[in-house]
Amino acid sequence: MNDPYRVLNISRNATDDEIKKAYREQAKKYHPDRYQNSPLADAASEKMKEINQAYDQIMSERKSGGGASDAYNTDYYTSDTYEGYNEFYSAIRRLINSNQYEEAEQRLNTVLPNERNAEWYYLKAVLFYRRGWLEDAYNYSGTACKLDPRNVEYKSFHERVTTQRSGAAGGYQPSSSSGCCDSFCDSLACLLCCDCLGDLICNQ
């Protein structure tokens, strides 16, 4: 097995707190929620397992008594947890989970336009997302949320992709023009070109 310290990317002299921190950072990175509906979910969960094992191993070595682990429990996340109300859509979800995208797509396309409900739009969004067609995924999941605003599954997925668009998960996040006296500082800077004075006045 891999060296658990290497897995967590820390030195052997790290304190317990440092280990905990490194573990939390890594666990956040590979958390299944982040890879929700992504074709990389399996690879990420492998990585998550590795991190959990590494953390458990280090902690039990250090405590020598063993003790219960604080590792995140990700067992709650299995792709089969959907309790479909509708056998038609449950079958499509199973197809998506076993990576049979074309078959799933074909079945979805048999639904007539006036019979398309929130779940239809959501599953369509998932299919687009897996293919990497992100704009369509975003638009369809938006429609799913509009049609059924109270559904937690659709909402969490749509929020995730909306966050991605903001640049918080990679890319460029435009600076929001907030702050007490932005424009005042700007005009001041024009006149004086002096950060210290600007700060002095603005922080009063």
């Binding site: 903001s166 998960a169 990679g170 890319g171 460029y172």
Partner: peptide, 21 residues
């Protein structure tokens, strides 16, 4: 361009997710 940046951001988020694996 603000819209384009959003589209690029979503793509960049996926780049990061794949890169980290």
């Amino acid at each position: 361009m603000a819209y384009c940046n959003e589209v690029l951001n979503m793509t960049a988020a996926q780049i990061v997710m794949s890169y980290e694996l």
